[in-house]
Design a protein around this nucleic acid. Structure first.
Lengths: 222, 222
DNA sequence: ATGAAAGCGCTAACAC
DNA sequence: GTGTTAGCGCTTTCAT
C-alpha cells in the first residue's frame, strides 16, 4: 500500500497537521519534532499525494503549453525557455500539440479546463477564435504567443512583425534596391499577414510599386 | 465560483452519482435524464475537477517524460511520438528536462513520485543510477529509453548500438577499407561505449588493429 | 434507474 | 507547539 500522511503521523507520534506543517513550513514546528517527522518520511519513503494537495489548495503547479507544431524549432525553443523558467519557480510543464488543427486545439483546452493547470500558454492555430469567449471559463489565466487569436480579446505576447518587415524592406530601399521580393509564411497566419503588410507599406511609403510576382508563399509557420 | 458536480446535480434535479455516471458511462442512465444532465453541464460550462477525480481514482492519466536535453532533435522526436500516442489513449504528457544533470534528474523524479504521473519514461543522464533502487517507490511503471541506467535493473527500450556499429564497420571492411575511424559520442554514455565496442570488435574480428588515432570524441548525446 | 453517503489524502481554521 | 476535524469534488458501494 501507498504510504499516506496519516501513516507518517502515526509512526512519528504526531498529528497530520504537524506533518503537513513540517513539510510546508507553514507554521512553527519544534526542531526535534520536525527532525523526527522528516526521518519517518524518509524511512517510509513518503511523498505527499499530488491530487489530494491539489484538490485542497486548488493549485496544481502545472502550466500548460499548447503549440501548433511540436517539432518546429521555433516552438521547441519556446518550450525550452518556458520549461526552465517554470522549474525555477517550482512549476511543471504539460506540453501539448494542436498539430495546426482547430479540433485538437479545442479538445486540449477542454482538458486544461478541468483545473489541471494553473495557467496556459497557447500559440493558436490559424482560425477564427471567437469560440474562446465561451470555452474559457476564466478560472485560470491564459496568454497567447506568437500568433494572435482572431476574434478573441486576451493577453498576447507577440513580435512586432509589421515593423520588422517594414524596417527590413526600408533598409534595402535605402541601400538603393528597387526590386524587392518576399517569401511569406503560410496564408492565414497573423504573422504572415503582418509581415506582408509591413513589406507592402514600406514599398508604398518609398514610392515603389507592389509587384505580385515578387510575392511568393513559403511554408513558414512562425 | 467554480461550478462543481453538485451544482450540476442540483440544477438537473438528480444526484451527483447520476451526473458522474452520465459523464463516465459507468452505469445506465435513462436517455432523458442523461440529456438533461448534459444540457445543464453545457449551460453551466461545467468541467469535472481533475484533482478530485484523480484523488478518488488514483489515476492522473498523465505520463512523465524526462530527457537530458530538451533541445536535442533526437529527444524531441521521441517526445513528439510519445505525445501523439498518449493523446490517442487519452493521456497527457508532462515534459521535463534533466539537462544532463543528475541532481535535476533526481529532483524531477521526486516530483513524479507524488503520484503525479501514471507512468514515467526516462532517458537518464550518464551516471551511476544505483540510487534509483530506493528512489522509485514502485507504485508506478518506469521505462528507460536510449541509455541504460547503470546500476539499476529496470525495463529499457534501447537501440542495439553494439551491433549497429559492428555491422557498419564490417561493411566497410568487406568493401576493402582498412583504415576506418570513428567519431564517438560523449564519453560515459552507454550508447557511446556500446558503439565503440562494436567498432573495436569488428576491427579485431576481421584481423585489423585498433588505431587510437582513428578514434575521435564528438559531441553527440544520443 | 437512481440516490445517499463514505472516503480518497491532504490543508487550515479553530481549539487548547 | 500541537491536535482535531471539516471539507475540497469526485467515484462507487450499498440501498431501494
Amino acid at each position: 500500500m501507498k504510504v499516506s500522511m496519516k501513516d507518517v503521523a502515526q509512526r512519528a507520534g504526531v498529528s497530520t497537521a504537524t506533518v503537513s506543517h513540517a513539510i510546508n513550513k507553514t507554521r512553527f514546528v519544534r526542531a526535534e519534532t520536525k527532525k523526527k517527522v522528516l526521518k519517518v518520511m524518509k524511512d517510509l519513503n513518503y511523498y505527499p499525494n499530488f491530487a489530494a494537495r491539489s484538490l485542497r489548495t486548488r493549485k496544481s503547479n502545472i502550466i500548460g503549453l499548447l503549440v501548433p507544431d511540436i517539432s518546429n524549432f521555433f516552438f521547441i525553443s519556446i518550450a525550452k525557455g518556458v520549461e526552465s523558467t517554470l522549474k525555477k519557480y517550482g512549476y511543471n510543464l504539460i506540453f501539448s500539440n494542436s498539430n495546426e488543427n482547430l479540433e485538437n486545439e479545442i479538445e486540449q483546452i477542454k482538458i486544461y479546463n478541468t483545473q489541471l493547470v494553473d495557467g496556459l500558454i497557447v500559440a493558436p492555430v490559424s482560425a477564427d477564435h471567437t469560440f474562446l469567449n465561451e470555452l474559457f471559463s476564466g478560472y485560470y489565466p491564459v496568454v497567447f504567443i506568437d500568433r494572435k487569436p482572431k476574434g478573441y480579446k486576451g493577453d498576447c505576447v507577440l513580435g512586432n512583425n509589421t515593423k520588422g518587415a517594414y524596417d527590413a524592406v526600408s533598409m534595402l530601399i535605402k541601400k538603393g534596391h528597387t526590386k524587392i521580393g518576399i517569401i511569406t509564411g503560410l496564408p492565414g497566419l497573423t504573422t504572415t499577414e503582418e509581415r506582408l503588410n509591413g513589406y507592402k507599406k514600406a514599398l508604398t511609403d518609398h514610392g515603389l510599386k507592389i509587384n505580385k510576382n515578387l510575392i511568393k508563399v513559403g511554408d513558414f509557420r512562425v
